[in-house]
Design a protein around this nucleic acid. Structure first.
Length: 470
RNA sequence: GGUCCCAUCUUCUAAUGGUCAGGAAGUCGCUCUUUCAAGGCGAAAAUACGGGUUCGAUUCCCGUUGGGACCGCCA
C-alpha cells in the first residue's frame, strides 16, 4: 500500500483587478480543504499578462486573504518562473508536441467567423501543423511573427470532478491551442499546468468557469509526463437574475465589504454557506468549526445567488456577541478620531448595528449633542409643563445619585423604585430625547450609563430650558 | 450556434427510495416595550414539466423546458 501524497492546493488569482468575492470564496474553499486535510495552501499569483497585471492588485489580494484569515504556506509569482516554463516549452517542442504557427490574428479571426457562420464550433484548422522544418526555420529567421501551438489529441476525454462526477469532452472539437507567444511568454493553460505539476498540486479547486479548460490542462499534463491533479469545480456566485455575479447588481470586490464594516467572521461564514452546508443545521459557524466538518462532497452543484440580507444578519449576529474591547477596536476606524467608545456605549449599540459603517450615524449623539425640536420632548399628549416637570424630577434623581451607580441595571432599579409602574413614558421619553436628541436611540438608562453624571445633567438642563422657551 | 454544467419555498439550503418535505435569512402577525433595535412566539411560502424503474420517488434513468458558464496571442 502506497502512502497518500500530502494534499496541496493552490489559489491562483491574476492580479488584474481587486480581489473579487468569487475569488475570495474560491480561496476560502481551497484553504478549508487544505486545513481539513492537514495539507498545504499555496498562493500563486498568475501575472503572465504583463499588460493587465498591477502590483496594487497583488497587494489587494494578499490584504484580502489576510483579512479573511486565509494564511498561505507558500507564495509564487508566475512572472518569476519563466525559466521553468521555457524549459518545458523547449522539451515539448523537441518532442514534437508543440509547433510554431505563423497565422496572423486577422486570418484566424476570418476563419473563426466563417466557421461560426456555418454553425460549427470555431476551431483552428491546424494549417501550420505540417510546415516543414526548413519552412519553419526560414520564417523564424526572417522574423515572421509566430506563436507556439500544442497538438491536441482527438479523443473522448473523461475526468472525474470531485463535486460533479464524470465529465466527458470530445477534444476533437478543441483544436490546437496556443500555449505561448514565444519561449519566454507562456500563456495561461501552459503556465498553470507546469506549475501544478512542479508544485505537486494534488487538488485543483476552482470556479465552474474553468471546466472547459480542464481537458486542455489534462492533455498538457500528460504530454509533460505529469500526473494530472484531481479537479473540483465550484458553483458560481450569481446575480439576482442568475447571471454571473457582476457590478451591475452589487459590489463585487472584497475590499468594498471590508470598507462597509462587515466582519471577517461573518464574511467567512457567509461565503462558506454559499455552496456548502454542514450536516446538521447550524445558523452560524466559525472557521474552526467549518474546518472540522468540511467535505467537498457536500458542495452544491448549482450556482448561488449573492444575497446581502443573509450577510447582514450574520454580521449583526457576530457583532452582537462580540466582547466590548474587540468591538471597540474594530469600530474605531469607522468613527471620527476623537470619538472613543466606552463599554456602556458598546453594550447599548452592538445589538443595534448591522455593519460597522452604520455605526457613526448611530453613536454620534454620544459625542456631539444634536440639535432637536422642543416638540420632540413630548410623549404622546403631553404638554410642555408636564415635560418640564418630569425632566426636573429626573434631574433631581440624577443629581442625587453617586457617579459610581451609573451602571445600566443599577440606574434602572433606582428609577423604577422612584417613578412607579404607570406613566413611565412620561418621564422616560422626555429623558431619552433630552439625552439623545433623537427619535430613535438606545434607552435612557443605557445612555445615562454611557454619558455619566455630569454630561447627563447638562443635557437634561438644556432640555428643560428648551421646553420652557416654548 | 457548438460544447459543458445545473434545476427543492423569494433567497441560502436539509432530506440520496418510505418525513405532515426540515432549518436559516427575508416578509407578515403577535408579544415585550419610553423610542428604535434586539429578543420570544407564530404564519404564509418549494420538490419546473412529462415519461419510465419500483409496492413506493425530491431522491435512480430518459426526454422536454428553463437557466448558466465557456468558446482570446485574458486568466
Amino acid at each position: 500500500m502506497t502512502e497518500k501524497p500530502r494534499v496541496r492546493v493552490r489559489f491562483a488569482p491574476s492580479p488584474t483587478g481587486w480581489l473579487h468575492i468569487g475569488g475570495a470564496r474560491t480561496a476560502l474553499f481551497n484553504w478549508l480543504f487544505a486545513k481539513s486535510q492537514k495539507g498545504d495552501f499555496i498562493l500563486r499569483i498568475e501575472d503572465t499578462d504583463k499588460e493587465r497585471s498591477k502590483p496594487e492588485f497583488e497587494e489587494d489580494i494578499k490584504t484580502g486573504l489576510t483579512w479573511l484569515g486565509l494564511n498561505w504556506d507558500e507564495l509564487y509569482r508566475q512572472s518569476e518562473r519563466v525559466e521553468d516554463y521555457r524549459r518545458y516549452l523547449e522539451d515539448l517542442l523537441r518532442q514534437g508536441w508543440l509547433y510554431y504557427c505563423f497565422c496572423t490574428k486577422e486570418e484566424l479571426e476570418a476563419e473563426r467567423q466563417a466557421m461560426m457562420a456555418q454553425g460549427l464550433a470555431p476551431k483552428y484548422s491546424s494549417r501550420c501543423r505540417n510546415l516543414s522544418k526548413e519552412e519553419v526555420e526560414k520564417k523564424l529567421a526572417q522574423g515572421e511573427p509566430s506563436v507556439l501551438r500544442f497538438k491536441v489529441a482527438e479523443t473522448k476525454l473523461t475526468f472525474k470532478d470531485l463535486i460533479r462526477g464524470s465529465i466527458t469532452f470530445d477534444t476533437s472539437l478543441i483544436g490546437d491551442i496556443i500555449v505561448a507567444r514565444n519561449l519566454d511568454e507562456p500563456l495561461y493553460n501552459f503556465a498553470v499546468t507546469v506549475d501544478d505539476a512542479l508544485m505537486r498540486i494534488t487538488h485543483v479547486i476552482r470556479g465552474e468557469e474553468h471546466i472547459s479548460n480542464t481537458p486542455r490542462q489534462i492533455l498538457l499534463a500528460k504530454a509533460m509526463g505529469a500526473e494530472p491533479p484531481q479537479f473540483a469545480h465550484l458553483p458560481l456566485i450569481l446575480n439576482p437574475d442568475r447571471s454571473k455575479m457582476s457590478k451591475r447588481f452589487s459590489d463585487t470586490a472584497l475590499r468594498d465589504y471590508v470598507k462597509a464594516g462587515y466582519t471577517k467572521d461573518a464574511m467567512v461564514n457567509f461565503l462558506t454557506y454559499l455552496g456548502w452546508h454542514p450536516k446538521e443545521d447550524k445558523d452560524a459557524m466559525t472557521a474552526e468549526e467549518i474546518i472540522k466538518e468540511f467535505d467537498l462532497k457536500r458542495v452544491q452543484k448549482a450556482g448561488a445567488i449573492f444575497s446581502v440580507d443573509k450577510l447582514d444578519w450574520l454580521n449583526a449576529h457576530y457583532l452582537k456577541q462580540m466582547p466590548p474591547d474587540v468591538f471597540m477596536k474594530l469600530a474605531q476606524p469607522f468613527l471620527l478620531e476623537n470619538w472613543k467608545l466606552n463599554e456602556a456605549m458598546v453594550r447599548a449599540v452592538r445589538g443595534r448595528v448591522e455593519k460597522l459603517g452604520d455605526l457613526k450615524e448611530l453613536v454620534g449623539f454620544y459625542f456631539e449633542m444634536p440639535d432637536y425640536k422642543p416638540e420632540l420632548l413630548k410623549w404622546q399628549e403631553m404638554t410642555f409643563e408636564q415635560v418640564v416637570e418630569n425632566l426636573e424630577k429626573a434631574s433631581v434623581l440624577i443629581a442625587d445619585l453617586s457617579e459610581a451607580k451609573f451602571e445600566e441595571k443599577a440606574l434602572e432599579d433606582y428609577f423604577f423604585e422612584r417613578i412607579g409602574r404607570e406613566n413611565r413614558g412620561e418621564m422616560l421619553w422626555p429623558l431619552r430625547v433630552a439625552l439623545s436628541g433623537k427619535t430613535a436611540s438606545p434607552g435612557p438608562f443605557e445612555i445615562l450609563a454611557a454619558l455619566g453624571k455630569e454630561e447627563s445633567l447638562k443635557r437634561v438642563e438644556k432640555a428643560v430650558s428648551k421646553a420652557k422657551i416654548d
